[in-house]
Measured scan of single mutants.
Amino acid sequence: ICKIPGCTKRYTDPSSLRKHVKTVH
């Protein structure tokens, strides 16, 4: 789960989550 407030994205893969946070936030 993405911990950024207001973001509801969920990831099972930690590397995908990290990439999401870097690119989207």
Rank of each mutant, 00 (worst) to 15 (best):
T8N: 10
K3T: 10
C2Q: 06
C2P: 03
L17D: 11
C2M: 05
T8M: 11
T23G: 07
V21K: 00
V21Y: 06
K22E: 15
T12I: 06
S16N: 10
T8K: 05
V21L: 07
T8E: 09
K9A: 15
S15W: 06
V24I: 07
S16K: 12
V24F: 09
P5C: 02
R18P: 09
I4G: 05
Y11W: 03
K9E: 09
H25T: 05
H20N: 06
S16T: 10
H25V: 02
K22R: 12
H20K: 02
K3M: 07
H25P: 05
I1M: 07
K19M: 15
R10E: 15
P14L: 12
P5G: 08
K22G: 10
K3Q: 09
H20A: 06
I1K: 03
T12N: 14
Y11Q: 08
T12A: 12
V24A: 14
C7H: 00
V24T: 11
R18Y: 07
R10C: 13
V21T: 09
Y11H: 08
G6Q: 02
P14T: 09
D13T: 06
G6N: 06
H20L: 01
S16D: 15
T23K: 08
K19R: 11
L17P: 07
H20Y: 00
T8G: 12
K22P: 03
K22Q: 15
V24Q: 13
D13K: 00
R18I: 12
K9Y: 14
P5N: 04
C2S: 05
G6K: 00
V24K: 10
T23H: 06
V21G: 06
I4V: 08
P5T: 04
R18T: 12
L17F: 04
C2E: 09
T23L: 08
L17T: 02
T23S: 10
G6E: 07
G6F: 01
P5K: 01
K9I: 05
P14Q: 14
C2D: 12
R18A: 15
P5S: 10
S15L: 07
K19W: 07
G6D: 11
S16C: 10
H25D: 05
K19D: 15
R10Y: 08
L17Y: 04
V21A: 15
T8R: 03
L17C: 04
S15R: 06
S15F: 06
I4D: 08
R10G: 13
C7I: 00
K22W: 11
Y11R: 03
D13S: 06
T8C: 12
Y11E: 10
I4Q: 08
S16Q: 13
I4P: 02
D13C: 03
K19C: 13
T12H: 03
K9H: 09
Y11L: 10
R18S: 15
R10W: 08
H20E: 09
I1P: 00
L17W: 03
K22H: 11
P5W: 00
P14I: 05
H25E: 09
H20C: 04
T12R: 05
P14Y: 12
R10M: 13
G6H: 02
K19Q: 15
C2N: 06
T23D: 13
L17S: 05
K3C: 09
T8S: 09
T12Y: 03
C7R: 01
T12W: 04
C2Y: 04
D13E: 11
V24L: 03
G6W: 01
T23Y: 05
D13F: 00
S15V: 12
L17Q: 02
V24H: 12
D13M: 03
C7N: 05
C2G: 04
P14G: 09
V21Q: 15
S15Y: 07
K3Y: 14
R18E: 15
K22A: 15
R10N: 12
R18Q: 14
H25I: 01
H20Q: 09
V24C: 12
V24Y: 07
P5E: 13
P5L: 01
D13R: 00
R10V: 13
Y11C: 15
R10T: 15
S15M: 10
K22F: 08
T12L: 04
T12C: 07
T12V: 05
K3I: 10
H25G: 05
S16M: 11
C2V: 02
D13P: 00
K9S: 12
H20R: 00
H25C: 04
H20P: 04
V21N: 02
P5M: 04
R10H: 13
Y11K: 09
S16F: 07
K3P: 09
I1F: 05
V24M: 07
C2A: 03
R18K: 14
I4W: 05
K19G: 13
K19S: 13
K19F: 08
C2L: 02
G6I: 01
L17G: 04
S15D: 15
V21H: 09
T8P: 03
L17K: 01
L17E: 12
R10F: 08
I1S: 04
T8D: 15
K9L: 05
Y11D: 14
K3A: 04
I1H: 01
V24R: 07
K22L: 14
H25R: 01
K9P: 03
V24W: 06
V24G: 12
G6T: 01
H20W: 00
I4R: 00
I4T: 09
S15E: 14
K3D: 14
T8Y: 08
P14H: 06
P14E: 14
S15A: 14
R18W: 12
I1A: 02
C7F: 00
K22C: 12
